[in-house]
Nucleic acid binder design. Structure first.
Lengths: 107, 107
DNA sequence: TTATTATATCGTAATATTGCAATATAAAAA
DNA sequence: TTTTTATATTGCAATATTACGATATAATAA
């Protein structure tokens, strides 16, 4: 085999896993961090920021977009990408809940 | 190719990516969530909680341990796993910083 | 000692990811 | 119109992940 048995897990577990999978590559972490340094959303120069070829960057952007971590809107010839605040707030609150639960533990 | 070009990214970006990679499988999310429901750290029954064979669960536990997300200590014949609070706090603070930065954005 | 119990490792097949050259698309400029 | 510019898609080779049967290890029980 090799395919993950996602049918046996809850929807929430699968959703969380796919969010983390989207962030599980250094290039995609770098993209997020670059988007954070840019003031506006007009940012079609992500390709120049990364040590990867244009098709590869395009593929990484697609994965981040499919996971809902970034949003992209067409701006003439260029495309304007920015971080999806809602998703990142969800992720933060997930870890916030985990850490709250951990406070009542022994370990 | 197929190997990710981790040499071209910063250590922090690679570290974060490997933390997220550890969480990028629903079984491993399920393991974390199960560990949260258990009061003590004595928990050698993760295998019975998951719809996966013992070697597969063992492999997932190893990945979580290697990434520093869980800790495991030998407890006689069994092994006692628990969540590594330090790592999870780090992840929460990473997203907390991101969300703070996002507040000063247009989008 | 010989079970038994709990977990890890090995080996391997199925599948997924990564990266990029080549090519396609689609909007704006000439 | 044709060219340029920006991004996406296709196709494919290299590599990584997932899953599990078989087997190994290592501590306790009998």
């Amino acid at each position: 085999m090799g395919a993950s048995k996602s049918d046996f897990f809850t929807d929430k577990q699968n959703e969380l896993a796919s969010l983390f999978k989207a962030l599980s590559h250094p290039a995609r972490v770098a993209i997020i961090e670059y988007l954070l340094t840019v003031d506006t959303c007009i940012c079609g120069d992500i390709v120049n920021e990364l040590p990867l070829a244009q098709p590869t960057v395009s593929q990484h952007l697609k994965e981040l977009k499919n996971a809902g971590i970034i949003k992209g809107s067409i701006e003439g010839t260029a495309i304007c990408y920015c971080i999806n605040e809602t998703t990142l707030k969800k992720i933060e609150s997930y870890f916030s809940i985990i850490n709250t639960k951990l406070k009542n533990k022994c370990c």
